[in-house]
């Protein structure tokens, strides 16, 4: 099966500054979340996939088409919703979306029909004859989504689609994205700094940090993995000895607060083992929660790994 996005040693430099460093990987999810702190290279990656930046080295393929050699084909398969306000002034929304459809290659009459459909689909049907600049922020975001989907692309790239939206509009946007994802007719690449949005919409994530891939995992598989995450809240006793004993059982653990700790249970360990150890060290177990590896955990872990890798490379450089 053709990958949605395939990165092959993709590097982008602006002048002497490296923005993306030899990215490699295949992304196959129905909805792919692109995460990373500010300046990680998310927007540069999107711009490169759209052909706005030329890769300094390597390349990428979208749905099997090379982004540089077959740029026009790639663009006809992609719908793009930029992060910032983007529209054509003094133009009604229907006119704007129709123009975008025609530029994507849809003949005039069909373009008008599809513009009506797209605007009704995103919920702007009643406001479609108004000029876009008179819209509220939420409506402008929906208009941008309409122009991105009007030609029925195979991959929809959404850059911060819920930026600045109030809760009802945000939930409408999220539900539209999920609807498109579940329809199965288009794949989605969603770039967002809001982990909740990505968690609600995506089944695969790519975490970037300083232009490198810090994590690339399938959220569905992570969720399905038979790993037991437990959050403990304790009081009294010798907490560090208790934690050490848990480690001796073969469980990974982390002390997350003064009274809290997270641990991953092994197949061979049971909850009763924890209670026995707690009793031995005089620790009261006040709360025990089963917890899945949330996107936040994955993201923070990726950031920590990224920092450690950066420190290692700095140390190596120093030596």
């Amino acid at each position: 099966m053709t990958s949605v996005i395939e990165l092959k040693d993709l590097s982008v430099m602006f002048g002497k500054r490296s923005i993306l460093n030899s990215l490699n990987g295949e992304l196959n999810g129905r909805a792919i979340g692109l995460l990373g702190p500010n300046g990680a290279g998310k927007t540069t990656l999107i711009n490169t996939l759209l052909g706005f930046h030329r890769p300094t080295r390597g390349t990428a393929r979208i749905l099997g088409h090379d982004i540089t050699a077959d740029a026009n084909r790639v663009r006809s398969l992609v719908g793009y919703m930029p992060e910032s306000d983007s529209f054509i002034a003094k133009t009604s929304c229907i006119h704007f979306v129709r123009l975008m459809a025609e530029l994507s290659g849809i003949p005039g009459r069909h373009a008008l029909e599809r513009a009506h459909e797209a605007l009704f689909y995103v919920g702007l049907g009643e406001a479609r004859y108004r000029q876009v600049e008179t819209y509220s922020l939420g409506m402008k975001q929906l208009a941008k989504l309409a122009q991105a989907i009007v030609h029925g692309p195979k991959l929809i790239i959404l850059d911060e689609p819920t930026n600045g939206l109030d809760p009802p509009t945000r939930s409408r946007m999220i539900s539209l994205i999920r609807q498109i994802r579940d329809g199965g007719k288009a794949r989605i690449l969603l770039s967002s700094h809001l982990l909740r949005d990505v968690e609600e919409c995506c089944d695969e994530i790519l975490v970037l940090k300083d232009g490198n891939i810090a994590a690339n995992c399938n959220l569905e598989e992570e969720r399905k993995a038979n790993r037991k995450f437990i959050e403990l809240e304790t009081r009294g006793g010798d907490r560090s000895a208790f934690a050490h004993s848990i480690g001796e059982l073969g469980c990974e653990y982390a002390l997350t607060g003064e009274r809290r700790m997270k641990l991953i249970m092994q197949e061979s360990t049971e909850i009763s083992d924890l209670y026995r150890l707690a009793l031995r060290h005089g620790v009261q177990v006040r709360r025990l929660n089963y917890k899945r590896d949330s996107l936040e955990d994955i993201f923070l872990k990726a950031m920590e790994n990224g920092n450690a890798a950066a420190e290692r490379s700095e140390n190596n450089g120093g030596l």
Binding site: G51, V78, L103
Partner: peptide, 11 residues
């Protein structure tokens, strides 16, 4: 109005 990305993300 930042419309250029909309034009240039098309063929």
């Amino acid at each position: 109005n930042n419309a250029l990305p909309l034009y240039l993300s098309r063929p």
